[in-house]
Amino acid sequence: MKRKIFVAALLVCCVTVAFAAFADLTGKWKGTLKFGDNEIELNYTFKVDGENLTGSIGTGQGEFPITEGKIKGNDFTFSLDFNGNKIPNVGKYYGDSTIITQDFNGNKSKIKLTRIP
């Protein structure tokens, strides 16, 4: 009987820790996209709901919604529709920073994001 209670308590703790890892990505982030001699400041807003990721990306050209967002552990993916072009993004969450790799028409770029306090 004690073993069953211990196992049940352990499972509850593991689920709580896993959910907390997802929830930590929620919030505001900033980064800079560099290509050639150009730099674009980006502001991301992420919201995690279970394994779904939503939010938006703000640039000097406006706000763009995140679509098709998924999160699993510390890895996440989403798409961005920019002027009719679908841009897939793959990211890894590291606590107070993330690294996102974008693929825009075959050109891959990495963006390091830091949390905005």
Rank of each mutant, 00 (worst) to 15 (best):
T59D: 04
A18W: 13
N107T: 14
K86S: 12
C14W: 10
D75R: 12
L11S: 09
F35P: 06
A9N: 13
I87Y: 02
Y44I: 03
E68D: 11
T98Y: 01
T77N: 12
L53M: 08
K28W: 04
T67P: 04
V17C: 03
C14S: 13
N38M: 11
T77Q: 11
A20N: 13
V7P: 02
G31V: 00
E39Q: 08
T77H: 08
A23M: 15
A8E: 04
K70Q: 10
K70M: 03
D37L: 11
G55V: 07
V15L: 11
P88Y: 06
E39H: 09
L25M: 04
D37C: 04
K70Y: 05
D81C: 05
T45F: 04
N74R: 14
N105G: 06
G60K: 11
I40A: 11
D81A: 10
K110G: 11
F76P: 00
G58T: 07
I57M: 12
I57T: 06
I100Y: 00
F19T: 14
T114H: 09
G106W: 04
V90G: 03
N85S: 13
N85P: 02
V17S: 04
P65V: 06
V48K: 01
G31D: 00
T67D: 02
L80T: 10
E68A: 05
F35C: 09
I111N: 00
K110I: 05
T101A: 03
G95N: 14
N89S: 12
K47R: 09
D49M: 02
G60P: 09
L113D: 00
R115K: 15
K28T: 15
D81H: 06
E41T: 03
N105M: 13
I87Q: 04
L25V: 06
Y94C: 05
N89R: 02
I66D: 03
K30R: 11
F35R: 11
E68W: 00
K86N: 12
G58M: 02
F82I: 12
T77R: 09
G69H: 02
G58V: 01
F19E: 15
A23K: 15
P88I: 04
T101C: 01
A9F: 10
S56W: 01
N43L: 03
T32P: 00
R3C: 09
F35Q: 13
M1S: 15
C14K: 09
G60Q: 13
S109Y: 10
D24N: 15
D49P: 08
S109G: 14
V48T: 11
F35Y: 15
S97L: 03
E39N: 13
D75G: 10
I87R: 01
N89T: 08
T32A: 00
V7M: 08
A21L: 10
I100S: 01
V48A: 04
G95L: 11
G55T: 06
K4V: 12
N107R: 10
